[in-house]
């Protein structure tokens, strides 16, 4: 009986699907010359120079809320804010970089994932990753505004301009978007350049990882020197006693890793980082999709079977039907 065959085919299809099988797509690898940033929460003093510089580079207006007209009161990422400094505050909030009765700063901006969820889910390739420097850019001319990128981003970075009838997605493009292209011109990102303390450091992912590992290995209290702005410029060295770092470089492995790395003295979940595993959800999603739709083979086979069955059944009915 043909129905049996059909069911058999469906089951075998489902089996391939469940096993993941040979089509499993692993996490993507970092771009060969991936550039990124290292944000060291312990060095950040919350001055918002990066926020203000970011607005300047991107030509975005300050977010004004209530009566605070004298400064940008952006509360979170939005279509007018691609980078924002947030604060973790507990109890009396007396001591910096302490969990209890302490506080800490955290930078929120695009993490420039190695295996970006936003790119994986965008139906029209409006988000693209540069093959060489790994920067995730947005292209409004392709975008249909479905906002799947927002749902696919583990960090809620892409922001749609809801208040504009012709809005678009806004996200940090590492100052390398068309018309700015600071990285292509050999400059560094605006926020890293503006950061007075070296809390936001620009460089290649490789060099930044090395720098982050060096800081992990410091004994708390020991005087260490650190660069400001560009990690590859050793002349910009500053000194400070080392804080007690969490032995965790956020972005080394999370969901396939990110080009923007974070280090901190308090656990990252307190700083609002999501619970991520090493395997990126993008890779799982694509594994499932490509297993089902590999060369459209499975759908084609199913369609063939269905056509045969339906045709036969209709012909069966011809006798007693008009």
């Amino acid at each position: 009986m043909k129905r049996r065959d059909f069911l058999k085919a469906s089951i075998s299809g489902a089996a391939t699907l469940c096993s993941g099988g040979a089509l499993a797509r692993p996490n993507l690898e970092p771009a060969p010359n991936a550039v990124g940033m290292l944000y060291d929460s312990t060095l950040c003093v919350g001055c918002k120079a990066c926020v203000s510089k970011c607005k300047e580079v991107n030509g975005m207006p300050a977010v004004i809320e209530g009566d605070w007209y004298s400064w940008d009161s952006a509360r979170d990422l939005s279509s007018d804010t691609l980078n924002v400094i947030k604060v973790y505050r507990e109890g009396e909030a007396e001591v910096k970089d302490r969990v209890e009765n302490g506080f800490a700063f955290e930078k929120r901006s695009c993490m420039h994932c190695v295996d970006p969820g936003c790119i994986s889910v965008c139906p029209v390739t409006a988000l693209r990753k540069d093959a060489i420097n790994g920067i995730v850019t947005y292209h409004a001319d392709a975008c249909i505004g479905c906002r799947t990128c927002m749902t696919g981003c583990p960090y809620n970075v892409p922001q749609f301009d809801y208040d504009n009838p012709f809005g678009e997605i806004h996200k940090c493009q590492m100052c390398n978007q068309a018309g700015v292209e600071r990285i292509n011109k050999g400059q560094i990102t605006g926020c890293a350049e503006a950061c007075p303390t070296g809390a936001t450091l620009f460089g290649t992912r490789e060099a930044l990882l090395q720098e982050a590992r060096r800081r992990m290995s410091l004994k708390p209290g020991e005087i260490y020197s650190y660069p400001r702005g560009d990690v590859s410029k050793p002349h910009s060295l500053y000194e400070k006693p080392a804080p007690e770092y969490q032995q965790h470089i956020w972005g080394e492995k999370e969901a396939g890793g990110t080009n923007v790395l974070h280090i901190s003295a308090i656990p990252f979940d307190k700083l609002g980082m999501p619970p991520l595993r090493e395997r990126s959800y993008a890779s799982i999603s694509e594994t499932v999709q490509h297993t089902i739709y590999n060369y459209m083979a499975l759908p084609a086979v199913v369609l063939g079977g269905l056509t045969y069955v339906v045709r036969r059944n209709i012909n069966d009915d011809e006798g007693d039907k008009s």
Partner: peptide
Amino acid sequence: MGRYWQFYNILLPWHMNFNAVMLE
């Protein structure tokens, strides 16, 4: 759709992202 006037992009092969569930 936030940018509905460009909806046809999803039908243009050079815009399609075959990894995206949304495309399917």
